[in-house]
Design a protein around this nucleic acid. Structure first.
Lengths: 109, 109
DNA sequence: TGTTTATATAACTGTATAGTTATATATTGC
DNA sequence: GCAATATATAACTATACAGTTATATAAACA
């Protein structure tokens, strides 16, 4: 929270974006897209989620600017609009590892 | 997602942590604690949230290792266990700003 | 035109949880 | 012991939303 001051409005917008990442299904969709552009069906195939479900998640991620969309004929191609998402995930993974280390340390003592 | 591979289990753990930050009330509690250790009542006062509500949010944040707890007499002092949380928030704010810029640009064209 | 296919959307169900009220659990000091 | 205070918890309500099923939209092609 450096540049923007945390007014209730900004807080809500930031929370909304964290919430979008706070869903296993959406994280695995984003993880899929790491390899590059994919159609909806390919994401469905890769994740094992239902088609309508994937479509809804992609709409949400698109609305928040996490993914980009390109339509070509029958197909909709989705891709990461913001590679920095994974920086967020990396940081969160780092936290997680530190947390698990701390917990193990606590158990050992 | 550098070190850990995104197994369903890891994905769920990461999502759980993002979800914790995906709540305006919890973000403002964390923002409060930026200034240093606070009692529950002080957080209640500062945020305007209800006491039971704050207590629950703090339990959750504590369970996930975001805040530390110290009990002294009647009071429970909570503090940030992980200053890096704000790095996450900064990144998300950066995304938000970029997103808003892009949207403005789109409207202008 | 009609058929097929890919994606989006509408309607619904079940579940999770934020917030509230009331109460329980400690701890301090009389 | 009892009263007062700070925090935690239990029980409840209302809402948000993930996932599903069924259907609509729209593009390609026969």
């Amino acid at each position: 929270m450096a540049k923007l001051t945390m007014t209730p409005e900004v807080t809500a917008l930031v929370a909304e974006r964290f919430k979008a990442l706070g869903e296993p299904a959406r994280l695995s969709i984003l993880n899929c897209l790491r390899g590059g552009e994919m159609t909806v069906s390919e994401v469905v195939e890769a994740t094992g989620l239902g088609q309508a479900n994937v479509s809804k998640h992609l709409q949400l991620l698109h609305g928040l600017g996490f993914v980009a969309r390109r339509k070509d004929g029958l197909f909709a191609y989705y891709s990461l609009a913001d590679k920095h998402v994974f920086h967020l995930c990396d940081l969160m993974c780092g936290r997680l590892e530190a947390e698990l280390r701390a917990r193990r340390k606590l158990l050992a003592s």
